[in-house]
Design a protein around this nucleic acid. Structure first.
Lengths: 133, 133
DNA sequence: ATACAATTGAGACAATGATACAATTAGTTC
DNA sequence: GAACTAATTGTATCATTGTCTCAATTGTAT
């Protein structure tokens, strides 16, 4: 049993799960690549609804602690050194953006096409996102 | 390795396979008559279940991009008049862009942050991507 | 009490995986 | 060459896993 709950503590269950998994990752008890129990398995163990576990996993995923993959499972990620909360947040968005652009370019799209597509997706008027030159 | 996967992108694996093969066919990297790897071979390469590859092949088959033949293999088909080629290509990029933005927003980023991050990633001067109003 | 927000639960859904199956091909034996 | 067997290929079905939407519950403030 990876996680132990205190139903009387007042701390939300999902929050307890998040905290304990973070703790274990920080302490090295869970290493990158390790697979966590499925949401349903952990939910059964803890006698809790699987959505509650899913919520915890989602938070951990967004925090970059784990990677949840539909149909595959959830895995511990490499833990980057935490420099700063704001930096982390921004860095994650930058990573996301860079992955998107790298992928688009790998597929053969030109910068201009990418910009146009983003303009459309963002609902911005044509030209508003274009470089003026 | 014909196809490259990003397990963290949120885009389904089968969808990534479909998109990349389409792209390669469109770009001429795969020509009519070329045989694709077997579902099991590609699955092994990508460390994925072969049914996931089979699903991608099935979609491509239904779209007329390839011909899958039980017991024989899968082959690139002659591409019919590609008036849609441009549309398909553009649609693909739009899907990618929308997925990226949806993901970013799901993670709680504001439009402005997203735009800023994209500007940085694209190496565009600050402000060039901003809406002027 | 009422209203509100947060938490948890229920059920349907989408993506992936495991297993068994069918069609084709390639050898092997006669 | 025909018949059989084994290997290889895609197919079909169902189980498993995470996701989404919305309802029920709980706690708290008004």
């Amino acid at each position: 049993m990876l996680v132990k709950l205190d139903f009387r503590s007042g701390e939300p269950i999902y929050s307890q799960i998040v905290a304990q998994i973070r703790q274990m990752v920080a302490a090295g008890g869970l290493k990158p690549g390790d697979q966590l129990p499925t949401v349903r398995q952990m939910a059964t163990d803890l006698r809790v609804n699987f959505n509650t576990v899913a919520r915890a996993y989602r938070q951990l995923d967004e925090a970059g602690v784990i990677s949840t993959q539909q149909g595959r499972g959830t895995y511990i990620l490499e833990q980057p050194v935490p420099p700063n909360q704001h930096r982390i947040r921004r860095q994650r968005l930058n990573d996301l953006a860079e992955r998107f652009i790298a992928e688009a370019e790998r597929l053969g799209y030109a910068r201009e096409e990418i910009v146009d597509s983003l303009a459309a997706a963002l609902g911005v008027p044509q030209g508003a996102l274009s470089k003026e030159d």
